[in-house]
Amino acid sequence: SLTLTVRGEEAVRRWYKWAQAHNLEVEVETHGDEYVLHIK
């Protein structure tokens, strides 16, 4: 499992696509303009 902090929706989309390509689940938490992604 992997936890990432990114800024901006574009980065979130990029990681989301990456995770889907690897059959992984993604949980997204929003903290202001930062997003915490939990990839499992």
Score class of each variant (00 low, 15 high):
residue 32 G to E: 06
residue 34 E to S: 11
residue 15 W to G: 01
residue 4 L to R: 04
residue 16 Y to D: 02
residue 3 T to R: 11
residue 22 H to N: 11
residue 3 T to G: 04
residue 30 T to C: 12
residue 34 E to G: 07
residue 6 V to Y: 02
residue 19 A to P: 00
residue 37 L to A: 01
residue 25 E to S: 12
residue 13 R to A: 12
residue 26 V to G: 01
residue 4 L to T: 04
residue 22 H to E: 04
residue 38 H to R: 12
residue 9 E to Y: 13
residue 35 Y to A: 03
residue 21 A to Q: 12
residue 15 W to Y: 05
residue 23 N to Y: 07
residue 38 H to I: 13
residue 37 L to M: 06
residue 21 A to K: 11
residue 20 Q to S: 10
residue 38 H to P: 00
residue 39 I to R: 00
residue 30 T to M: 14
residue 5 T to R: 15
residue 36 V to C: 08
residue 21 A to W: 10
residue 7 R to H: 12
residue 34 E to P: 02
residue 27 E to W: 14
residue 4 L to H: 04
residue 21 A to R: 09
residue 16 Y to W: 11
residue 26 V to S: 01
residue 27 E to Q: 12
residue 8 G to N: 10
residue 35 Y to N: 02
residue 17 K to D: 10
residue 36 V to E: 03
residue 36 V to Y: 06
residue 13 R to L: 12
residue 22 H to M: 10
residue 4 L to G: 02
residue 29 E to K: 08
residue 25 E to V: 14
residue 31 H to A: 09
residue 24 L to G: 02
residue 10 E to H: 09
residue 34 E to I: 15
residue 13 R to W: 09
residue 36 V to D: 02
residue 26 V to D: 00
residue 12 V to D: 00
residue 17 K to S: 10
residue 11 A to W: 06
residue 26 V to E: 00
residue 25 E to G: 05
residue 21 A to H: 09
residue 20 Q to K: 13
residue 15 W to Q: 00
residue 22 H to W: 07
residue 9 E to N: 06
residue 28 V to P: 01
residue 30 T to R: 15
residue 31 H to S: 09
residue 34 E to Y: 15
residue 26 V to K: 00
residue 22 H to Q: 08
residue 3 T to F: 04
residue 33 D to K: 06
residue 12 V to C: 13
residue 7 R to A: 07
residue 16 Y to M: 15
residue 8 G to E: 05
residue 16 Y to V: 15
residue 37 L to G: 00
residue 31 H to L: 12
residue 16 Y to T: 15
residue 35 Y to H: 05
residue 33 D to F: 06
residue 27 E to F: 13
residue 19 A to I: 07
residue 9 E to L: 15
residue 32 G to K: 05
residue 15 W to F: 08
residue 21 A to T: 09
residue 39 I to T: 01
residue 20 Q to P: 00
residue 16 Y to E: 12
residue 25 E to A: 10
residue 9 E to K: 13
residue 15 W to L: 08
residue 23 N to S: 09
residue 23 N to L: 06
residue 30 T to G: 09
residue 2 L to M: 11
residue 16 Y to R: 14
residue 37 L to T: 00
residue 16 Y to Q: 15
residue 39 I to G: 00
residue 23 N to V: 03
residue 2 L to I: 13
residue 11 A to N: 11
residue 19 A to H: 01
residue 25 E to F: 13
residue 4 L to A: 04
residue 26 V to C: 11
residue 12 V to L: 15
residue 18 W to H: 02
residue 28 V to Q: 04
residue 2 L to P: 04
residue 16 Y to C: 14
residue 30 T to H: 13
residue 24 L to P: 00
residue 11 A to T: 07
residue 35 Y to L: 05
residue 11 A to K: 05
residue 2 L to Y: 11
residue 28 V to K: 04
residue 6 V to Q: 02
residue 35 Y to V: 06
residue 14 R to C: 15
residue 11 A to D: 07
residue 1 S to H: 14
residue 39 I to Q: 00
residue 3 T to L: 07
residue 40 K to R: 14
residue 27 E to R: 12
residue 13 R to H: 09
residue 18 W to I: 03
residue 29 E to P: 01
residue 35 Y to E: 02
residue 29 E to T: 12
residue 13 R to I: 11
residue 11 A to I: 07
residue 8 G to W: 04
residue 35 Y to M: 05
residue 6 V to K: 02
residue 35 Y to D: 01
residue 23 N to H: 11
residue 34 E to M: 15
residue 12 V to N: 01
residue 20 Q to G: 05
residue 7 R to C: 14
residue 8 G to F: 05
residue 6 V to W: 01
residue 21 A to V: 10
residue 13 R to M: 12
residue 9 E to M: 14
residue 29 E to C: 11
residue 17 K to G: 06
residue 21 A to M: 14
residue 31 H to E: 06
residue 15 W to K: 01
residue 8 G to A: 05
residue 22 H to T: 02
residue 1 S to A: 11
residue 23 N to R: 07
residue 12 V to G: 03
residue 24 L to Y: 14
residue 4 L to F: 08
residue 28 V to L: 10
residue 22 H to G: 02
residue 1 S to W: 14
residue 33 D to E: 11
residue 8 G to I: 03
residue 15 W to T: 02
residue 38 H to M: 07
residue 31 H to Y: 12
residue 17 K to I: 13
residue 28 V to R: 02
residue 39 I to D: 00
residue 32 G to V: 04
residue 15 W to E: 00
residue 16 Y to F: 15
residue 35 Y to P: 03
residue 10 E to P: 06
residue 3 T to E: 06
residue 34 E to N: 10
residue 22 H to Y: 08
residue 28 V to Y: 06
residue 36 V to K: 06
residue 21 A to Y: 12
residue 40 K to Q: 09
residue 39 I to N: 00
residue 19 A to Y: 02
residue 4 L to N: 02
residue 18 W to K: 01
residue 28 V to E: 03
residue 3 T to V: 11
residue 39 I to M: 06
residue 17 K to E: 14
residue 35 Y to Q: 03
residue 24 L to I: 06
residue 19 A to K: 00
residue 38 H to F: 09
residue 19 A to M: 03
residue 31 H to R: 14
residue 37 L to H: 00
residue 6 V to L: 05
residue 36 V to F: 06
residue 33 D to R: 05
residue 34 E to R: 11
residue 7 R to G: 04
residue 11 A to S: 08
residue 25 E to I: 14
residue 40 K to V: 08
residue 9 E to S: 09
residue 26 V to W: 06
residue 27 E to L: 13
residue 4 L to S: 02
residue 7 R to M: 10
residue 40 K to T: 13
residue 23 N to P: 01
residue 35 Y to G: 01
residue 4 L to E: 02
residue 5 T to S: 07
residue 6 V to R: 01
residue 16 Y to A: 09
residue 21 A to P: 01
residue 28 V to G: 02
residue 23 N to G: 15
residue 38 H to T: 14
residue 14 R to W: 15
residue 5 T to L: 11
residue 40 K to G: 09
residue 16 Y to N: 05
residue 34 E to Q: 11
residue 16 Y to I: 15
residue 8 G to H: 06
residue 28 V to T: 06
residue 11 A to E: 12
residue 6 V to M: 03
residue 24 L to C: 11
residue 39 I to C: 11
residue 27 E to K: 11
residue 29 E to N: 05
